[in-house]
Structure formats: C-alpha cells, structure tokens
Design a protein around this nucleic acid. Structure first.
Lengths: 350, 350
DNA sequence: CTGTTAGCGCTTTCAA
DNA sequence: TTGAAAGCGCTAACAG
C-alpha cells in the first residue's frame, strides 16, 4: 500500500499517512539512507557536517528507527521474557522490581508471561521460538513447556530464580538451610510439637524447605507423633485453612513453621478470629520470605528474610552477561544469603 | 535438545547454525514459501494434501515463523506496553493480573514499563515510536512523556486506568464519591475530628479523594480546626510516619481517612507499637483499595473495595476493541463500581 | 489452488 | 567518508 502512494507526487498525503522512515530523513538531509543509519549508530564514521544535517532532520521529522526492521536485520529483539506463576505476590513483585529495573536500564524490554494454562504456555514458547525474545527468566521454576517443546529449544539463555533448573543459570537461596533455621529457632525455644504448613505439592521450594524442616526435627530427636504437616498453597487462604485444621487437632502443636509469609499471616489471623488463640502466647509461628506485610501484621512476623531485590538484580546481571557471550558462574549457580529475623510471632513454649 | 539428538552429528552443526526458516519448510514439503505461509495462516486456501505435507514438515523441523519478519510485514507487533509506577503494590498487581490475562489470551505480549527516571521514560517512548508496541495502558496516570514527546505521538491507542487522562480511554472508579463515603462512614459513627492521610502531592487519585473527603466534612459542618490533613506516599512507611505526627497532636482526631490501605495499616500498626493505641477502641481508621492484606491485618480493615481484576480486564477489552478499530465507549470513559466495606477498624466515636 | 515476486525498513558490505 | 544495493524472513498481490 505504501508503494502506491510513495511514487505519486503528493508527498504531503504520504507523510500524513505514514510514520517517518529512514528514507524520509535521508531525503530531508540530502544524504543516503546508509549515512543516516551510520549517523545514528556510529556517528564517528560520518563527517560532522553531514552528521549535523542528519540529526537536524531526525529531530525535525521526529524519526525513530522501526524496531521490527532492526530486529529482522539484527536477528535479535532486545526483549526478555519473565515468567512467573502469579504477579499478585509481594515477594515476587519485589524480585521482579529488581529484575526489570536492571534489565530496562540496559535497554531491554521486559515481557511478562504466565504459564497458567496450555494456551498461555504455547504462546510463550512461540514467542521464544519466533525469536521475539533474547532471553528468559523463570521465577520459581515456572518454565514454559508443552508438547515436547521447552524454552531451551529457542537457544536463548535461561535464568531461573528461586528454583534449580537443569540447563539454566540458577539464582537461589538455600531453602534447606533456611527451613532448618526456622524449625531450629522453634526447637530452641523449647517447642517439641511442630506443625509444618506446606507449599503446593511438588513445588521446588516446598520440597527443599520440608526437607530442611525434617532435618531439624530429626536432629532434635522429635518423633513422628510430634511432627505434623499440612498441605498449603502459599496464599493467605491456605494459611487460614491450615489454622482450621490445626484447631481440630486433639493435641495441638505449639510451634508452626510456614512455608511462606502469607500462609503464616493467614494462619495467625484465623487462629485469633476463630478461636481467640494468640500468637505467640499460645502458639509460635515462623514465616518465610520476609515480605513487607510481615512487618505490619500482628504480631510482627518472625521470618526468613530473602534478598528480594538482589535476587532479581543478580539474575538480570547474569542474563545480561550470558547475552554478551560471557561464561556462566561456576557451577551454573549463584546462592544468595537469606536469614532468620526474629520478631514477635515466636516465643518460649509454655 | 530433541532437535540436537535427532539428527546425526553432521546435522547438528547445520541445524545449530541457523534457525528454521519458511524456505526450509517449503523445500522439505516440496511447495513454495507462499503455500507454507498460507497453510499456516489460512489453511482453507490450501489443498488438504499440501496442507498436510506442510504441517508435517513444520512439525518435523520445529518451525515457528520469525516474529520480526512478520512484524515488519504486518506493521504491528502484537505487544502492549503497560506502564506502572511500582509493581510492588498489591492493588496494582491485581489490576495487572486481570489486564495481562485478558491481553495474553488474545495473543498479545505484555511489556512492562516504569517511568522512574528520564532514561526509562525515553526508552519507553522510543519503543512506542519505533512501532514495537501496538498499544499502551497506563496505570494510575503514569504516562511516559519527555522532551515534548508523549505516547500519543506514536498513534497507538492509549488506555488509562485509575486516572483520567485526556486523549486516552479512561477506566476509573469514582474516587470522589468513594472518599466521600469513607468520611461519611466515620461521621455517621459520630466522629467529628477527622484526619486525612494523603497520597503523593498532585497524584490524580489523591486530588479526587481529598476533594471527596472535604465535601463530606463540609456537608457535615465540620470546621477547619476539626479537620486535619497529613501528606503521605501510599506506602506502609508513609502511614507509619503519619501515625507519629498524629501522636504529637495536642487534641487528636478520633477518625482517620487514609488514601490507601497500606498507609492505613502502617498507621494502625504504628499507633499500637509506639503508643499502645488500639483501633477502633481509641481511633477509627478507614482504608482505600481493598487489597487482600486488608482482610488479614489487625483489626480487619474497613475500606473501599475496588474491583481490581475488573479494572484490568475492562481496560484490556477496551484496548483490544480500539485495536480492532472499534469506537471508544461514550465519553471515552468507563466508570466501575467501588464501595465501602465495613470491617473491624471503625467504631463509634467515644 | 499454487507459485512468483515485490517489498516491509533497516543495516552493512562493497566500491568508489 | 559516502552511496548503491543486497538482503534479514515473511506475506500478499497478482498471475496462472
């Protein structure tokens, strides 16, 4: 359609119809398109006189090089896919903040993706295989995979945050050690009947954390009848549901280890509302993540503080390095420090 | 990895060098590239026999059409820019969830942007003007603009959520009426000394809400000495800071209207921790937004519930409609229902 | 129904 | 230093 109008004498009409192209700038500056291109991306190669002419034309016409054409030539897109389960999660929101700040500072666009259903997953995979994405960051093990295709088929670098994935560059905290610290904190306070409120079945973090929890209870010599495990889902409502089950227990635990903060908060709130049980007077509760809410709920939550922004920033830097062709970190993984911060939700066993 | 193992060692090298193009598929299927293209995007135009051959070749080669080439041809990118202040905000996170679910269900990629500093802003503007984005959604009035350029110069549809912007399709709630309802609720409970904890100066929502608050206090005949206004920033810490100022007041208000939930929660928590002041026994506090945490803090927050997901979904649908060339809604705006939900943080004035 | 072909807008040899 | 020209991979107009 452009071809038709372009050849005609009515330049005005053509201008109004279409966005400014490099040829328009070239014409206005009285140079070739090659010179315009160079003036923009390699100014040193162009004589000052022409360069100025070009820049003036660029400004006056309001020219911005077309991205699709550039991408097609360059074979890259300067876009990164970030895949998460849900964005409605303050922990990941914080991680993403660090991630996208770093990525966009380097001129990369950040595309958000979810693999909720197969359609979404397929769409993400298509994006990667279509070369629209230069790299992938998966948060918490959410790697799009469907019909035998994975994100690794797209030969772009992949970084995984908070979950170890083979073939990816991994940015982690030591879930095992942290969960062990949660349980040990409680045990150290004299608690001998412990409840573990789990994350989703099969979830990477859940598995590691439960293992850490068990390691601590075993080490302390707690036997099976003293240790409970309720399934959960990382949501407030999951913590609330666990609290209800807790209330039904004939001989209740006095210490509760939650796999994340939302569940801990939902647990505590429900105990209070439903049964007037107070934390830490009647029960001690530890969370995991260190979300901001943890400092504003009642009581302030004893929890594992993860370096949320740093997880995102580190991942971004590693991806950027991979994009530049640099070697991945030794072992293909970086482990960041996280630690227990004792607040008001835990106390001595009664 | 499937591709690698499949061919011989020789094939690997060749395969690794180049991504599969349409010509490769055409050759493998013994047809022209046009037929491949049609088989993929308009199967009805191709004979079943050839269509099957093409599809078989597509599958066996693992072909995905290159996005940049497609975009260049089509003059569009099937990507939408979503601009927010911060993602670390549970209210917006929920809005974004609805937004991106709807957008990605239609095959659009969602690009996240922030206009924190000028570099970021310029980058976003470039993206829009470079034709890499087909539409823009601005959350809470965060529209990239720098050096005289705006997002409107890129001739793409713009939707604004939660803030009225001229030239955009607006999706709103009635901030004025909601804030009025907050104050009236308190006044109805007998409170006559009221504090308003504001959002950032100049913020659209802040302006509308403060106006609504004032309308209610004036209507109730409260005079200047009975009405206070503290500045704030929509953060927990802002609410905490307001609480400290509140404590310094010689004759304290008994009712507090907060411009959002985080500030309300930060306010309440600080009152309790610093001065053992209990809500609603000593002071009543109303929030705004209806974030999930409002149901889990102590006491459960009386607040304005905004239809968070619906705000996102509605915006997405309107943008999609605009992209299809459909007319914007009457008046260029849609106003969704939000209302006060009374919980445990407000009670009768003492 | 199918193939040929002309670009989409840009960058980058290759020559001058 | 500069310009001419060849594509990047794809789709759609136009023949056949």
């Amino acid at each position: 359609m452009a071809a038709g109008g372009k050849g005609g004498a009515r330049r005005q009409a053509a201008q109004a119809r279409h966005v400014v192209r490099i040829a328009d700038v070239a014409r206005a500056a009285g140079v070739s398109t090659a010179t315009v291109s160079r003036a923009l991306s390699a100014p040193a190669q162009v004589s000052p006189a022409k360069r100025d002419k070009v820049m003036a034309a660029v400004r006056s016409l309001g020219y911005t090089p077309n991205a699709a054409a550039r991408d097609l030539r360059a074979g890259s897109s300067r876009s990164i896919l970030v895949v998460t389960g849900t964005r409605a999660n303050p922990f990941f929101a914080q991680v993403l903040e660090g991630l996208s700040d770093t990525l966009s500072a380097e001129g990369y666009a950040v595309v958000m993706g979810t693999c909720g259903n197969e359609a979404q997953t397929t769409h993400l995979l298509d994006l990667v295989h279509a070369g629209r994405l230069d790299g992938v960051v998966a948060v918490s093990g959410k790697l799009p995979a469907a019909g035998g295709r994975t994100v690794f088929g797209g030969k772009v670098p992949v970084v995984s945050i908070c979950a170890e994935v083979e073939g990816a560059i991994n940015v982690l905290v030591d879930d095992f050690a942290c969960a062990k610290a949660q349980a040990e904190h409680l045990i150290g306070l004299g608690h001998r009947r412990l409840l573990y409120v789990a994350g989703p079945e099969g979830n990477y973090n859940e598995l590691r954390r439960f293992a850490g929890f068990l390691a601590a209870t075993e080490r302390a010599g707690l036997f099976a009848g003293e240790v409970f495990r309720f399934s959960g889902d990382f949501l407030f409502s999951g913590g609330a549901a666990a609290a209800l089950r807790f209330l039904d227990l004939p001989h209740r635990p006095t210490g509760v280890v939650c796999c994340n903060d939302e569940m801990a908060i939902g647990f505590i709130k429900t105990l209070r509302v439903v049964a007037r049980i107070e934390v830490p007077r009647d029960v001690s509760v530890v969370g995991f993540d260190g979300i901001e809410f943890a400092d504003y709920c009642e009581p302030t939550l004893t929890t594992i503080h993860q370096p949320q922004r740093a997880l995102g920033e580190t991942s971004a830097k590693l991806l950027l390095a991979a994009l530049r062709g640099e070697a991945p970190p030794p072992g293909g993984r970086v482990v960041l420090e996280a630690r227990l911060r004792v607040a008001a939700s835990t106390g001595r066993a009664v």
